[in-house]
Simulated assay, not measured.
Amino acid sequence: MLRIFDTLTGHRRLVLTENDRAILTRKGRTVDMLGAGEHRIKRDDVVEQHKLTSAIFSGGNVDALLRDAPDLAAKHLVELRTDANEVAVVMREGRLFTALAPDSRMHLWADAGPFDVTRHDVAADVRVPDDLAKRLMRARLTSLMTAAEVAEGHVGVMTLDGANPTVLASGAHMFWNAGARVAVKHVDMRLRSHDVTGHEILTRDRVTLRVNLAADFRVVDPVTAVTKVRDFEEALHRALGLAFRRTLGALTLDALLADKVAVDAEAADAVRAEMATLGVEVGAIALKDVILPGEMRDILTAVVAAEKEAEANVIRRREETNATRSLLNTAKVMAENPVMLRLKELEALEVIAGKVERLTVHNGTAGLLGDVAKLRD
């Protein structure tokens, strides 16, 4: 009966559940927002239905709704707005729901709430609080964040729009990407070694040679090391090369080869002083290798060989002189002491007996010793 009556009067029935909402438009104007229940509307009314499960009002006529029915909009919708330097984090019934970027607007169904909104000024602090960052990551709401991970033993030098450098400790850091442009440069704070290989130097006596250098260093002021030079390791490389070029270039080849340790100590002070102004502490510096050109290496090899041969000749002459002097002393002792002579004769006899298979002695040892003595005479 009601259906027939509605048909005759130009009406129809609309049934909405607890999870449904509807916007009623008549002749292009919003006249009502309907909740759960049965509603009697005119046949020509336009109904736009929405589900509260999405919570976000996604109707295309929100501006018309706010203009034509501001009281209805205030009753059924929650409007969120952010300014140019603000991020809004929306909680729904104690759980993270969404995040709103700067200069944005969002409308939520009031009946889908309650909603709690936390606002963050990205101009004042671009960092995302740690607990909030973890919740946003678990909820996969990371579109407004950027991450920077600093490894153990390193620090990060963070700049905002290329200025105001600050130091970040090792670990994970999250930043709002809706504010200033964040750049993080990683700096290794551990003790390291830097090698300069094949550096060519002209000595004072105009000999071209190549040297290999090594220096231990570590960064003590990361902000200075990053901001004062483009690459502090390249600056260390250049400082080592120039310092050793000046020091070694003032020496002759013989002086350089005679005392490399003194050369290291002399050049190291200049390098340490220069790198200290760049926030880098330089430790031990070593001149590891001196590489001569081929022809010079052959000449030096010949010189060393001649020197060693001369030393060997001197040693041989000295030993020969010592041996002759020892023989002369022995002869003098034997001439003055016949018993010593007889003992030497017995030693000679022992040596001869050891080299023959059989030795026959006639007339006793006195005759044998007499014959040996005759041989001596």
Score class of each variant (00 low, 15 high):
residue 4 I to M: 07
residue 10 G to C: 13
residue 10 G to V: 15
residue 20 D to E: 14
residue 29 R to G: 00
residue 36 A to D: 05
residue 37 G to N: 00
residue 45 D to S: 08
residue 45 D to Q: 08
residue 50 H to I: 03
residue 53 T to S: 14
residue 55 A to K: 03
residue 58 S to Y: 00
residue 71 D to F: 04
residue 76 H to F: 02
residue 77 L to Y: 02
residue 78 V to I: 07
residue 96 L to W: 09
residue 102 P to S: 00
residue 109 W to I: 01
residue 114 P to K: 01
residue 115 F to W: 07
residue 118 T to A: 13
residue 123 A to V: 00
residue 128 V to C: 12
residue 141 L to D: 02
residue 165 P to W: 04
residue 172 A to Y: 13
residue 173 H to Q: 09
residue 173 H to V: 11
residue 185 K to F: 03
residue 185 K to M: 09
residue 187 V to H: 12
residue 194 H to I: 15
residue 194 H to R: 10
residue 206 R to T: 14
residue 207 V to W: 03
residue 214 A to V: 11
residue 221 D to P: 05
residue 224 T to V: 11
residue 224 T to D: 09
residue 225 A to D: 06
residue 236 L to G: 03
residue 259 D to K: 04
residue 262 A to N: 07
residue 271 V to H: 13
residue 275 M to T: 11
residue 287 L to W: 01
residue 287 L to T: 02
residue 294 G to I: 10
residue 304 V to Q: 13
residue 306 A to K: 05
residue 312 A to H: 05
residue 316 R to Q: 15
residue 320 E to S: 08
residue 325 R to F: 05
residue 329 N to D: 13
residue 332 K to H: 10
residue 343 L to T: 13
residue 347 E to W: 06
residue 350 E to N: 11
residue 357 E to A: 08
residue 362 H to I: 03
residue 370 G to Q: 10
residue 372 V to H: 07
residue 373 A to T: 15
